[in-house]
Amino acid sequence: MKEVKVCLIGSGRAGMVHAHNYTGSVPNARIIAVCDPMEETAKSAAKELGIELYYTDYREVLKNEEINAVYIVTPTKYHKEIAVAAAAAKKHIFCEKPMAMNEEECDEMIKAAEEHQVKLQIGFMRRFDESFQEAKAMIAEGEIGDIVLVKSHSRGPSKPKEWMYDIKKSNGPLAEVSSHDIDTVRWFAESELKSVYAIGGNFRNKEIKEQYPDFYDNVIMTGEFENGIHACVEGAQYVQYGYDARVEILGTKGVICLGDIHEKKILTCTPNHELKRPTTRSWKFLFKDAYLAEDRSFIRSILDDTEVECSGLDGKMAVRIVKAGNESIVEKKIVTL
C-alpha cells in the first residue's frame, strides 16, 4: 500500500479537525469520503474538504474497497458497533475518545481488530503534543527526581449538549471532558490506578437538575497508582471564560508545568491600570499540532505495520477509570479498581 485512503465517520468539530489534516498535511494519506447520518451535514463537510464522496450510512462506507481506514468520531454509544464492523471489513480504525461505553465493548473492539489484523488507535492526542513529549523525556532523565503527583485538568466553555445530561448515555463529564486527563496521568505515571475517590456537582446547569438529577458539570477525582504515585483529575463544563487544559507533574526534586491559558502573546495595559490578555477559546487551537502528529503516527503504523502509539488497551483503561469515578460519586466512597 503506497497511500492510505481515509473516510471520516461523524463530521462534527473533532472529526473535521482530523479530516482537514488529511487534505494535504499527512504524508501518504488523504481523505476521500465523509459519512454523517444527516445528509446536509455530510454534504457540507464533503464540500468544505473539497471531495465529492459522502455517505449517510456507515455500512455503505465499509462496502467501498477503495477505503483503507476509517475515523470514528461519533457519539460514544456508536463506537463499538462501527469499529467491530469496520474491522470485519478490513478497515484500519482510528477511534476518538472515549473508546466505548464500558469495558466489555472495549474488549469486543480490541478482539475484532486483532482477529482481522487491522490497526486500532485511540484518540488521546495530548500524548503527541510537543511539550508533553518533552516532559516525558525530562522525567525519564530524572530531571525532577521521582514523580510524586500528576495533576491534570480540563475545563471547557461550551454548554453541554442535551444527550450529555443523561449519565447513562454519556458516562458524564468524567468521560466526555476528563478522558484526556485520565490518560495523561496514567501515561506520565506509567502505572495503573488502584483506587479512586471522586466528587461531582451541578453548578452551571441547574435548570436541568430535576430532569437529570445525577448530572454533574464539575468533578474532582483523586487516586493512587500501583507504583505509589498520586493522581488528581479535575473537569468542568460551561466555565465560559475559555478553554483551559493544564498539567502539573510534581517530583521529589522539582515540578513540570504544562499548558497555557492564554491564546496569544499580546498583553494590553489600559489607562485604568488593568491588564488584559485573551484566553484560549478552543481545544482546536491549543492541540492543533498534536492532532496532526497523532494522525501522522496512525498512518505510519499502517504503512510500516508497527504498533500504534495509543492502543485499545489505553482506551479501555480510561473507560475503566471513568466507571470507577462515577461509582465513587454516586456511592460517596473510595473505589478499588
Rank of each mutant, 00 (worst) to 15 (best):
E162Q: 14
V319P: 01
D295E: 12
T76C: 12
K43N: 13
A231F: 01
Q237N: 11
D295C: 14
W187A: 08
S282Y: 09
L174I: 03
L53V: 15
E130L: 12
Q117R: 13
M164K: 05
T336A: 09
G50V: 08
E234Q: 11
D304N: 13
E130T: 12
W187V: 03
E331K: 11
L53C: 14
V322W: 00
E331P: 06
M221Y: 02
N68Y: 02
V61H: 03
V34I: 13
E307W: 06
A175I: 00
D183T: 00
I144K: 03
N326G: 04
D217T: 03
H79E: 07
M125Y: 11
H262Q: 07
A137Y: 11
K284N: 15
H116Q: 09
A88M: 11
I110C: 07
E60P: 06
R300D: 14
G12Q: 12
E248T: 13
I144L: 08
E65V: 12
N68Q: 09
G235I: 00
S179R: 01
Y78E: 09
Y216N: 03
S11G: 12
G201V: 10
E134D: 14
S311R: 03
R246A: 05
V196I: 10
I51E: 07
S154W: 00
T252M: 08
G200A: 02
S195N: 08
A29T: 04
S131N: 12
R30A: 08
K333W: 03
V26Q: 03
R30M: 10
V185L: 02
V239W: 05
R13K: 15
S195W: 10
L258N: 03
H18I: 06
E327R: 06
G12H: 13
P75K: 04
D260N: 15
H20T: 09
L53N: 14
L120K: 01
Q117P: 05
R127M: 08
T279H: 10
W187Y: 14
C7N: 10
N102I: 04
A14D: 10
